[in-house]
Design a protein around this nucleic acid. Sequence first.
RNA 1: GCCGAAGUGGCGGAACUGGCAUACGCGCCGGUCUCAAAAACCGGUGGUCGCAAGGCCGUGUGGGUUCGACUCCCACCUUCGGCACCA
Length: 831
Amino acid sequence: MTQDFYPFKEIDKKWQDRWEKQGLFTMDPDSLKKKYYCLMMFPYPSSALHVGHGRNYIIGDVVARYKIMRKFNVLAPMGWDAFGLPAENAAIKSGIHPKISTLSNIKTMKRQLRSWGVGYDWERELTSCLPDYYKWTQWIFLQLYKKGLAYKKKASVNWCPSCQTVLANEQVINGECERCSAQVEARNLEQWFLKITDYAQRLLDDLQILKDWPERVKTMQENWIGRSEGVEINFKVADSDINLTCFTTRVDTIFGATYMVLAAEHPLVEDLIKGSGKEAEIKKFITEVKKDSAIDRAASDIDKKGIFTCRFVVNPVNNRKIPLWIANYVVMEYGTGAVMAVPAHDQRDFEFARKYKLPIEVVIDNPREPLDAKDMKEAYIENGVMVNSGQFNSLSNTDAMQKIACYMEKEGIGKRKAHYKLRDWLISRQRYWGAPIPIVYCDRCGMQPVDEGDLPVLLPEKVKFSAKGGSSSGGKPCTESPLKHIKSFINAKCPKCNNKAKREIDTMDTFVDSSWYFLRYLSPKDDKRPFDKALVNKWLPVDQYIGGVEHAILHLMYSRFIIKVLHDMGHVNFNEPFARLFTQGMIVKDGAKMSKSKGNTVSPDALIAKYGSDTVRFYTLFIGPPEKDAEWNDRGAEGAWRFLNRVWRLVAEGSRLKAEGSDRSEDATRSLKRKTHFTIKKVTEDIEGEFHFNTALSAIMELVNEIYSYMGLYPSVFSLQLKEAIETTVILLAPFVPHIAEEMWVRLGNKTSIFEIEWPGYKEDALAQDRVTMAVQINGKVRTKIEVDSAASEDEIKKTVFENETVNKWTNGNPPRKCIIVKGRLVNLVV
RNA sequence: GCCGAAGUGGCGGAACUGGCAUACGCGCCGGUCUCAAAAACCGGUGGUCGCAAGGCCGUGUGGGUUCGACUCCCACCUUCGGCACCA
């Protein structure tokens, strides 16, 4: 006989076709069932998927299928985050138009998703680079513009010389472009921003609502928003009308401020140094700092340097005149760009003061060991007792912090304020493959938004991608948007006066596209509105969002922001887009993230051809807890293959025995029933809980092992309990390995799809045991085991223990000093 | 420096609320079947001492709490992720 492997080739295809035909994943808008919106982050259409990508979709598919079996009305849509640089860069190299390569990639990925057996409601597919979608991305922009939340300003921005575009702060990692790792430069450019900073506090506060988000993601957003509380203090510049405002979180140290520092970029610097006599020297210094800062501020430990402005400011609490400096360690982007320096209690100020021989004055003393400014090796930043601080002396500094703030507010010297690290979101890109920003510039009326009725502003298709030669030659990206040279695009009419005007040539960051796509899935073909308000209010927030942790800050915060804006404008009635978030870990190979450039990707295609879709799914889910990174090992996939065949043979055997079903009651049968119900409980809890599919699958494997032992004990007996065990195995496997489960279900004599039946519940009384094994410890070490009635009283247990030979050997028959009994688990004797 | 996660066999990993450490799988070893191999099935598999019964050690390190600690507390080491002259 030839070895019977299960015929995955036919089975996979058969059921994939069937699900599509039956519309298993088609959401029914009229259903009365409870809704469940299960969303996976839509992918960027790169050339092909590897098994690491698969993890995301397979996890989502398990959840969707489980919820279908739980009789929810499930919405599981899919789309394509299809604008972006890689396609354009490919076009520069190969000459293939981004639209063509993107749409062709989408085709490949769709085939791959299907081959994993991952199901979606494809009727709702959306593609962000097509006009029927980006029309509404432009609409979103116009809403923000209307509210004053989209604005253009000249600012020092991050410029990637290799990608030839500006980047958002969130896209700069250690001073490098997150995409190409080129060193980012600072450039002063006029750019479009979205005013996410207006929402900083709400984005921070509402993290608390997000109970079902991973703590680490919330922490990352918290850090990124970077709120700190302090006081803004006004310092008057001596012999001048100029006031300088500085921000401090340590107002308790104000009496120890011995100088003040401005950032080189501070707008008042020029006025202040006028007539100082050292103007040229100071200007030279400023130019130097600005040049350095672009490159080195990302690298942490650059030398502190500064220059005296020849000016003094007055400390408002004691009217003392202190020198005003400019230094490279103060940045304009945070706070007010002006800092009161307290060298005794701030390490940076301390280093600077030592270098430039500026005075150091202790105002918070160490209660254990009094400080002496002359001997200090570093700043004292701990808590302590106020000294040299006028009426606040001898208070604890934490008390003083409150009292000084109150005093300042009363006297009008300062004001309590919170500052944030979060910067506005820079959304313009000087590249072609993105949604055009719907703005025109009219000589007469100035900057004007395009009328909503005139959307979309179409992205022209015929363009030159590279700087030299025609569209097909390889080369470097143009130094300006390719759109600049397309007359038919550039020339527009002013929406206000109908005269000639020029279009904005920047396109939008792709993160704008992805910040609202989950709304569009509810009415993807609607050409009248971006989304259907009623439907969206019914279906959102998303019940379960699944994606990579790399989006913890970017995409997830931008989406939260956009939803809050839409909420405030009355377009939606919910405040947060994603109720529950799951971030899966990466799959690594040879210790490194899978990537084409490292050549360590594993393609699912070959594996699926060899073992079928379910084997790849099983191994991907079994590899480890899905929120953690995991190492891929082809051998492990073989184990999954072996197991599925093992179940396949079990079902074949089961259906052969079927006719003789009888109710039996010997120990092994009762134990099988217990195991069956225990497994239902375990698998259900693992799915409902933290998605620990690895342990759910181990539990099913244990059940299968027990079924095999049982069949070894009673060959050719088909008890009702065995029938139940086999059927349960198949049902529990269905969300994980749907093709083989469907097929086995049919072969067990069932007529309907396994996804039409209801997920089983377990019977509490089936879990009960008559006899239990208890470990017996002597002084905390397990020495033997006893078996007792599960209802046995403590006295009965003790009796059994003291009759035990091994116990007597260890106790020499002496009574124990103490005897701890944990029912059903163990006995510990202390002797 | 700050914030967060983690450290368990040869490997991926499991362990409820403080209660039998290493479930499940991979690998390896032995056996059954076979002319043989593959597949499958059965059994073994933390280290160490011992012929054996059995003993001792063992969840990053060092302490502590407890009848009992992978789990709780204190101090530290290492790895990974995020933030960072942020005032």
